[in-house]
Amino acid sequence: MIFAQGLAPIFILDLAAGVLLAAAASCRSRACGNHVTGAAVLGCLAGLAAPLLRDCLLGFGALPLNRGEYLAAAVFGALAGALFGNLSGRAWRFFYWSDSLGLALAACVGTSRGLAFGLGLSGCLLLGVLAGLAGGLVRDMALGDVARAVEESLYATAAALGALLTLALSLYAPLPDWQSVLAGAALVLLLRLLPRRTGMGA
């Protein structure tokens, strides 16, 4: 089993990433005027993208499809995002922060899982970044947007630096894996906040 009982905190963070990425996708879709059912479907796809890609690359096939928690998390996030997408004054803020936190958690959880299953350092970083970007890429391609991963300077770079911190703490600090993940995610959020503080864009 990819998440043993002792790794329950990592599993919870993984589900949280799915909720957030699903919410970001459905919120963005509703804010663009799409129907609620279409927004919900897109949210589910975005929420499942990270664990599906990560586990397939780790050799576990479609394991997330056999665990109802992943689908439940994606559905919950998609419905929440669709609700916030109707609130024109708050939709963009909700999208930005749910996307940023989902990116952070998915990237850092992916890095931690790569290390736990024996990948080398570069493999862990690559797995983490790919997992972090997967949900956003699915969303942006489906909506016909320019991918934020290539449009924004501190998107993929933030995910990579957060993954690097997660990896360093997991290897050299006496911390549980989930704490290393949270520290890496906090760095991603800090970096995502910088453009807003400096006026470089959202």
Rank of each mutant, 00 (worst) to 15 (best):
A8K: 06
A147P: 15
G199Y: 10
Y172N: 06
R197F: 11
N86H: 15
A82E: 03
A106E: 11
A74P: 04
A158K: 08
Y172R: 08
G135I: 07
V36D: 01
T37L: 14
L20R: 07
C108D: 04
S88N: 06
L57D: 13
R90Y: 12
A62R: 07
P176L: 01
Q179G: 10
V129A: 03
L21D: 02
L105Q: 02
R93M: 10
G61R: 09
A8H: 11
A23V: 06
A4I: 08
L121D: 09
G110I: 03
Y155W: 13
L20F: 10
N86D: 15
P174Q: 00
A80V: 12
A25G: 14
T37M: 14
G128P: 01
V150N: 11
L83P: 04
A62F: 14
G136R: 13
I2E: 07
I12Q: 10
G114D: 00
F117W: 13
I12E: 10
T157Q: 08
L83W: 15
E151T: 07
V129H: 04
A149V: 12
G123C: 04
G81P: 09
R67N: 13
A23N: 14
A80S: 03
I12K: 10
G123P: 06
N66R: 15
G128E: 01
G59Q: 05
A156L: 09
L167N: 01
A78H: 01
H35V: 01
A156D: 09
R67V: 09
A202C: 12
W97T: 00
L130H: 02
R54D: 10
V146N: 05
P176I: 01
L169M: 05
R90V: 03
C124V: 05
G43K: 03
L119A: 11
S98D: 03
A202G: 11
A82P: 06
R197Q: 13
R148A: 13
M141R: 15
L15C: 11
L115K: 10
L169N: 00
L101Y: 08
L121W: 13
L127S: 06
A106V: 08
S180H: 05
E69K: 03
G61D: 01
L103W: 04
A107H: 11
G201M: 09
A24Q: 15
E152N: 10
R196H: 05
P51A: 01
R30Y: 03
D140M: 04
L71I: 05
G6F: 06
F84L: 11
G18T: 06
F95G: 04
D145A: 04
D177V: 00
L83S: 15
A49Q: 09
R30H: 02
G136V: 03
G89C: 06
N66T: 08
Q5L: 12
L171G: 07
Q5M: 11
G128V: 02
L119I: 08
L190A: 15
L21R: 00
A185R: 12
A104E: 09
S98W: 02
R67L: 07
Q179Y: 06
F84C: 07
Q179V: 09
G33S: 10
A22G: 14
